[in-house]
Every structure is written in C-alpha cells, then in structure tokens.
Design a protein around this nucleic acid. Structure first.
Length: 261
DNA sequence: ATGTCGCCTCATAGGCGA
C-alpha cells in the first residue's frame, strides 16, 4: 500500500497539479494539507477513482484524505480543547490502518500567542498519540508537522535559528513522539543523510539552490514500522509552474499478510 | 529587514499568514 502526503498551499490553486500527480503515481491514499478553502472539491477526484474526506475552513488550514479504498472517518478534531476551531486534524481508518492527516501549527513568530498555541497543540497531540499506542490498530500519521527535527533537516541551521520550526521546544516535543515508539519513516530508512527536503521558500531561488527544510513527515506505530518498505520525497511537483512551496512524500507499506523478509 | 505566494476585503491595493 502506497500512502503519500502533500501540503498543496490552496487546493483551488493546485487542483490540476494534484490530478496530474495522482494519475502519475496512483497512490492508494493521498493526505493533503493547507486546502485554504471553505469547501473541498471532492468531485474533481472521483473520476480518477478517489473518494475523499476533508475538514475545511475559509481561507486557512484545511486537511483531507483521498483514497482508492473506503474511508471510515473516526474524528475531525484533536482532543484536549473544544474551543480549538482550526481545521488541522483528520483521523480515519483505511484498509485496517488508522490514517491521520495533520497540519501542525506554524507558530511564528517565537513567543507569540501562535507559538504558545503550537506547543499546546503538540502536547495535546502527544496525548492522542499515546492513546493510539494502546489500541490494536496500526497507526500512520502524515502531514505538515512544521518541525525541523534535526540540524541535517535544513540547508543551513543559522538561517532557521530564529524560526518557530527550529526551536528547542517543538523539536523536543517531536523527539518525545519518537520516544513513545513511533518511527520517522524517512529518517529511519535514510539515516544521517542531509539535503533531503520537503519545503523550499518561494523567494531567493531557494528550490534551485536546494535551500530547504524537511518538515513533512510520516510517523508509524512500532508494528506498522515493521512493514515499512520505502519512503521517498518526489521533488517533481516543486519544479512545475505555479508550484506549492511543499512537495509530496510517499511511503510504501507491506500487507500484514506478507511474511517479513 | 527582505524575499514570494494565496487568501480576503470597508476590493483592482493592502493586510495577513506562511
């Protein structure tokens, strides 16, 4: 089973890119973030064989799950704060795997209310991740985590020193998720390898010089990590005309019936 | 500080968020 994730920075602006990419790769599941629209255009993807579920709000945020297989939506909100109205979380079950699409708060500037919200969101997320570990269901969380996990996950640490994505607090919280037993799919299969990014700024020819950051991640529960086959970043869409500032990341998961090698 | 996108509106320019 192939599962991909892509922050599209507006689904309206990127619908042609997404359709082309789906017909090229034919993933079983595609997680989307930053829809930036009140409605998700589900009908655009049905002719390609994808059903969808989405959590949306006007102008900001928004997450979705596209799938060739039936989607059973479990939750559209993150636990721990009923007043949190941001569209950043969608939990579903597809093919006996819990699949979660997240758009973690950016948190800039440091020290602002938005930074406080980011840390609180990560604390609530940690709680939810802990609860999931107690269930039988294998879990995959994918999306824009807005966290640069380590120094090798950015082109030049000095350039990100004053950015919320690179601060000790969110990075410690990301490490704590790994501490629970979750596996960062890309880093697990490509240990110690720098220069692999999922986001490049629109300005200063950042993509041309590969000045980027790795902030779109897949976290796999321990049992699911044993079935991890591959994890790759597809830089292709970032090179297109009118691109998103992010590019897709893909994981391949073996069927649970297949025997381990 | 700046760069560049995409969204929205006391809308065709400017503010906000990223």
């Amino acid at each position: 089973m192939v599962i991909a994730s892509w922050n599209v920075n507006s689904i309206r602006a990127r619908c042609e890119h997404v359709k082309t990419w789906l017909s090229t790769w034919n993933p079983d599941v595609l997680l989307l973030q930053e829809l930036k629209a009140a409605e998700f255009p589900a009908e655009l993807f049905k002719p390609l064989g994808y059903e969808s579920a989405a959590v949306t709000q006007k102008s900001y945020n928004g997450v979705a799950i596209l799938s060739r297989h039936p989607i059973d939506v479990v939750s559209t909100t993150l636990i721990g704060d009923e007043r949190d109205s941001h569209a950043r979380f969608l939990e579903a079950v597809v093919n006996d795997i819990r699949i979660v699409s997240i758009y973690l708060p950016n948190g800039n500037p440091i020290g602002s209310d938005r930074f406080v919200y980011k840390l609180a969101w990560m604390d609530r997320f940690h709680q939810q991740m802990q609860i999931w570990l107690r269930s039988e269901m294998p879990t995959l969380v994918g999306g824009d985590f807005n966290v640069i996990p380590e120094d090798i996950d950015c082109h030049k640490p000095a350039s990100w020193m004053h950015d919320a994505l690179f601060q000790p607090e969110p990075r410690a919280r990301y490490r704590a998720l790994i501490g629970l037993g979750y596996v960062d799919a890309f880093r697990f299969l490509h240990p110690g390898q720098g220069g692999y990014f999922t986001f490049w700024d629109y300005f200063r020819k950042a993509f041309e010089y590969n000045r980027g950051i790795r902030i779109d991640h897949f976290l796999l529960s321990p049992g699911l990590a044993e079935r991890l086959e591959s994890c790759e970043i597809d830089k292709g869409p970032r090179a297109l005309d009118k691109p998103s500032d992010h590019t897709p990341i893909l994981v391949q998961i073996r069927d649970s019936t297949e025997t381990a090698r």
